[in-house]
Simulated assay, not measured.
Amino acid sequence: MQDEQLEQLRATLTRQRYPLLFITLSGSHLYGFSSPDSDYDLRGAHILPLREVIGLREGEETIEQHHSENGLEVDLVTYDVRKCLTLLLGKNGNVLEAIYSPLVIHTTPEHEELKALAMRCVTRYYAYHYLGFARNRLKQASHKQPPSIKSVLHTYRVILTGLHLVRTGELEANLRRLNEVFRFSSVADLIARKEAGGEKAQLEEGAVALYEAEWRRLLSDLEQSVESSVLPVKPDAQAQAGLNDLLIRLRLQTV
């Protein structure tokens, strides 16, 4: 990402109503298969002030905005910090990936605290987030002819991120790096075609069938990897207590 684009994205954040815990870049830029016409998916957490969580009138737990920023299409989604932490403990891979995205647009010292605690709360059952997401992708692919190359890449990315997580305990959302481990020639080819053809690049009629058998095999591998995973069965109790303390401190800072 160029410095000019980074500054444009940060300008978006200056108009936010609530203090921000962190904002990172997700979507195709994080996954390693962006094209020149890809939009910018910003994800993160905001901090509702104490008065908006203890009264009858509650603040916005989820904020979604989509707009154009000097030619950049920006999709911004933030959760209140309590909802963010609840989703994290509820095995939500999207939140986990947002927390650890290396493409940081805005950060705070408390974000660093969160990163130090969050992976200690990741269990082997995070696999079910990736299994569920991939199964939905598989259903969509079989009903949509022909699917976009982007959709096919998303399916590979979701499955391989889940497999890598349960087998190694490491989170990797970038499909290029994942493919250095799994080495699918089809993935490298699809990434090149997506970069050249853009967001709307389509597969040829019937081509998705070439990938479905591979996806089903990988899904089976992911299912079988759950019980043998290097990840624990339960979140670390001290890390959970640390998240609770972090939330309280963040709330009190807004008084």
Rank of each mutant, 00 (worst) to 15 (best):
94 N>M: 04
120 R>S: 14
91 K>G: 03
111 H>S: 09
114 L>T: 02
131 L>E: 13
113 E>T: 14
138 L>W: 02
86 T>Y: 12
105 I>V: 15
132 G>T: 15
122 V>D: 08
113 E>D: 11
92 N>S: 02
134 A>M: 06
106 H>C: 08
112 E>D: 14
122 V>Y: 07
131 L>Q: 11
135 R>E: 14
129 H>V: 03
138 L>R: 13
126 Y>D: 00
88 L>W: 03
113 E>H: 11
135 R>C: 04
138 L>K: 08
117 L>H: 10
95 V>N: 00
110 E>Y: 13
107 T>N: 06
91 K>T: 13
100 Y>W: 04
89 L>T: 06
112 E>F: 11
112 E>N: 07
131 L>F: 15
111 H>A: 13
124 R>I: 08
88 L>F: 06
98 A>I: 00
116 A>M: 09
95 V>A: 01
137 R>V: 02
111 H>G: 08
129 H>T: 05
135 R>P: 03
93 G>T: 12
125 Y>L: 12
109 P>C: 08
100 Y>R: 10
128 Y>S: 07
89 L>Q: 11
95 V>L: 06
89 L>N: 00
120 R>T: 12
83 K>I: 01
115 K>I: 10
100 Y>S: 05
84 C>E: 01
85 L>C: 14
133 F>R: 13
122 V>Q: 12
101 S>V: 07
97 E>W: 01
102 P>I: 06
123 T>A: 11
124 R>T: 05
128 Y>C: 03
106 H>T: 01
118 A>C: 02
88 L>P: 07
112 E>W: 05
85 L>I: 15
104 V>A: 06
87 L>H: 09
132 G>P: 05
99 I>K: 01
125 Y>K: 10
128 Y>H: 14
90 G>H: 08
91 K>F: 09
133 F>I: 08
92 N>L: 00
97 E>C: 05
107 T>A: 15
127 A>N: 13
121 C>Y: 03
99 I>F: 06
85 L>E: 10
136 N>S: 13
136 N>A: 10
110 E>A: 13
91 K>H: 12
113 E>C: 11
95 V>F: 04
102 P>L: 13
120 R>N: 13
130 Y>E: 07
134 A>P: 09
122 V>A: 06
123 T>R: 14
98 A>F: 00
115 K>Q: 15
108 T>H: 10
113 E>K: 09
109 P>W: 10
